[in-house]
Design a protein around this nucleic acid. Structure first.
Lengths: 261, 261
DNA sequence: CGACTCTTTGAGCGTCGTCAAGGGTCGTGG
DNA sequence: CCACGACCCTTGACGACGCTCAAAGAGTCG
């Protein structure tokens, strides 16, 4: 199936990402209405609910900030299913029965809402559109499956360690070059992402601080002096940066393959 | 995005599932080679490894029995990412870095391997093919995301309870009509699916037996006398049967929408 | 400055994993 | 036919890990 990724990139046909850097916008008809493309400026904690209708074909693109796709039970337990950083496309929230699903701003966010319901009929026969949406869903599946393994088989220290490593790499850190990382989320958010609770996360961070694995300049700013050392404490390798960078903003055709390199 | 599900069904164009009941076969060229479609008869425990090449476009369809998509760390910890029962299509195993991924027979299985690498180029422009693969991946994402919440926020008793309920529903049980269920997997397999260990699963099953939530006729056969009672102990509703029945073998066009009903 | 939120840390305890022993079933081979 | 091993399931004892509750410190905003 890796071949489909190539098509999904879309660049080889000369199609270029829109002004926001995302592919989805480019499928809007030339003279689309205001309502079809809408920017949400979301303060931390604000939510966007998924649309329940069957005839709705909305996409959300995170333009700035960090958001999360969340699920909750009636009793209030929350699970963050995915972290959505700038460039990420959310093409449908799939609520299980008896649960609520929403997109929530973890930090202040700009989210672009694109409604393609108007030209759904044409798009369903458009190979480029289908390949793009396939790619969006495929990427998400990839990360979701990895997260299942994290939740099912890593203990709390490993989960937090992996989380720090991932955040560092998202910020551009490499094994060779440390990098100041700004956490866009609270301890409770981290906990809800990792299937832990906030106190446990805080305690583990303190432990990692003491063991010099990570230096905190403030509760939300840290540096990992030696990413390799972090990695040695984990039973998995740390994912490539490409894993966190959405395809549509990558430099050119073919680079998608780096994911498997 | 729900609209795409309609196209993905494929029936409305008159395209019908192949002899094995699956859509993917129908994309093989008329005079395809033997190698392009291959049946694997797998004894319990046997594995199929994912293909590493970038130019490979293989699909696996479980025709009979129960298989699992698995991940493992170097240290041996295993996580079952998804249960694959008859009719399920696996379109790519996406190994995270530093982990192994494979498809494993939990019970004796027949798995059909379909290699579309030969006509990849045409298929990448074929809306029907793209819609079908989109649907395959989308379905999987839906279940994967639900499983994240299960692993992250349900305790062990809730996980096992939910598992029993799901297995009952897969076997055709409803709130009104109990049903004899045959477990196609060991306690350890269940544990690896639920992020627990085998002894814990066994202990919890014993507890549920004592509380009459479930009757075991043998270690691998049980009946849930009152599915509603099981559901009342859970913070989530039990998914619809449609959640477990692959789209390609559903009766007709339009029925896909029942997923959201 | 106080109100609020977030974070940290401690004490206590329940849950779940580890280790170990014993029993049941099945297939093989003497 | 039975002995044996392989494998799975069950149950107990014990301990560590992670959650709950509580209190106090740190940072932010009006």
């Amino acid at each position: 199936m890796q071949n489909l990724k190539m098509t999904a990139n879309g660049h080889q046909n000369g199609r270029l990402p829109g002004s926001c850097g995302n592919m989805i916008c480019t499928f809007l008809p030339p003279g689309h209405s205001q309502a079809a493309k809408q920017k949400h400026f979301m303060k931390r904690g604000r939510r966007l609910d998924s649309c329940e209708s069957d005839t709705c074909m909305k996409f959300w693109v995170v333009v700035h900030g960090t958001a999360a796709t969340c699920t909750a039970f009636e009793d209030g337990r929350r699970q963050i299913v995915g972290l959505e950083t700038a460039g990420e496309t959310i093409c449908s929230l799939m609520a299980g029965p008896g649960t609520q699903n929403w997109l929530e701003a973890l930090s202040d966010c700009i989210v672009c809402e694109i409604d393609l319901s108007g030209n759904a009929r044409e798009l369903q026969g458009d190979p480029e559109f289908l390949a793009t949406t396939f790619h969006v869903v495929h990427r998400r599946l990839e990360r979701t499956q990895n997260h299942i393994t994290t939740l099912g088989r890593l203990d709390s220290v490993e989960r937090v360690t992996l989380f720090l490593a991932e955040m560092a790499i998202r910020s551009g850190a490499t094994r060779a070059k440390p990098q100041l990382v700004t956490l866009p989320m609270s301890r409770e958010d981290i906990a809800d992402y990792l299937g832990l609770n906030a106190e446990t996360v805080s305690r583990i961070l303190s432990r990692l601080k003491k063991s010099r694995m990570v230096k905190f300049l403030s509760p939300s700013e840290f540096i990992v002096p030696d990413l390799g050392e972090l990695e040695r404490r984990l039973p998995v390798e740390i994912p490539e940066p490409a894993m966190f960078r959405p395809a549509a903003v990558r430099p050119g055709p073919g680079t998608v393959h780096e994911v498997r390199a």
